[in-house]
Design a binder for these strands. Structure first.
Lengths: 134, 134
DNA sequence: TATTGTTATACTCTATAACTATA
DNA sequence: TATAGTTATAGAGTATAACAATA
């Protein structure tokens, strides 16, 4: 069971460190997740987006609403299927993704840079092994 | 960055697996966390409990309220300091901790049992190393 | 004055199920 | 009928700041 405890504590440590950055942008974790998922794509339907971010579509509606209010994403109606929306990053959203995401990454890299290549490989392998069990 | 992705995905896998069990009891993750923290103790002040479960005291008030409604914990006022409460598991709460917690553990062990001792050690060490960085 | 918790406020997330519009 | 999303409903967690009671 020590393994599980370690996993949880490590994730919590990462999570606390990470959310600090996200919050400074006035974003929540799910909102940040959506921005990152849309980054480097040409947009995505609500359904796809919900699947990738592991939330239900009803929940996603609210998250996208709030991102739209902030001007970071917009809903586009494709003429060939007017039932659905394509969610796309606005230029402002792109800017957030491109400037903030790397700075987030940068923050993390500052920490992870202390690992040797061998350590990185070991840790990655360990986590994969553990994940296979669930 | 692959390391972080692995960590997140592994935790999500664990979390999905774990929350399934918790939900079946009509509990939420924070509530379960409180029960586990109180288990095998003689009780704890709100402040301590908040610190251990990583939520603010205002938030904890609501969580403890709901557990009290379910009859799983109670607030005891120590005569020597009437400002504070000692939160204690009720017999019903003990029962949940003792019967449900092990069954939760049991579910996890089913999975973790597939690890050799060496693997367990490796993974634990890897997670510790990673956590140190945050 | 300092400490311990609660309360008030305001939001976000969450799932489920019913609903609307389009195909 | 089936599909894509929204809306309605109801609850839980979240932080912050103001507050009450006790020490």
């Amino acid at each position: 069971m020590a393994v599980v405890r370690e996993l949880v504590r490590t994730y919590q440590a990462f999570s606390a460190y990470s959310e600090e950055n996200i919050r400074e942008l006035g974003l929540t974790a799910p909102q940040f997740d959506v921005i990152c998922t849309l980054g480097n794509t040409s947009g995505m339907m609500m359904g796809q987006l919900a699947e990738k971010t592991l939330v239900t579509k009803g929940t996603l509606t609210g998250i996208v609403d709030r991102l739209e209010q902030k001007g970071l994403v917009r809903r586009e109606v494709p003429p060939e299927n007017r039932r659905c929306f394509i969610i796309v990053l606005t230029p402002e959203g792109e800017r957030v993704f491109e400037s903030v995401f790397p700075s987030h990454i940068h923050h993390l890299k500052e920490r992870l840079g202390h690992l040797t290549d061998a350590e990185t490989q070991q840790i990655t392998a360990a986590l994969k092994r553990l994940r296979e069990l669930f």
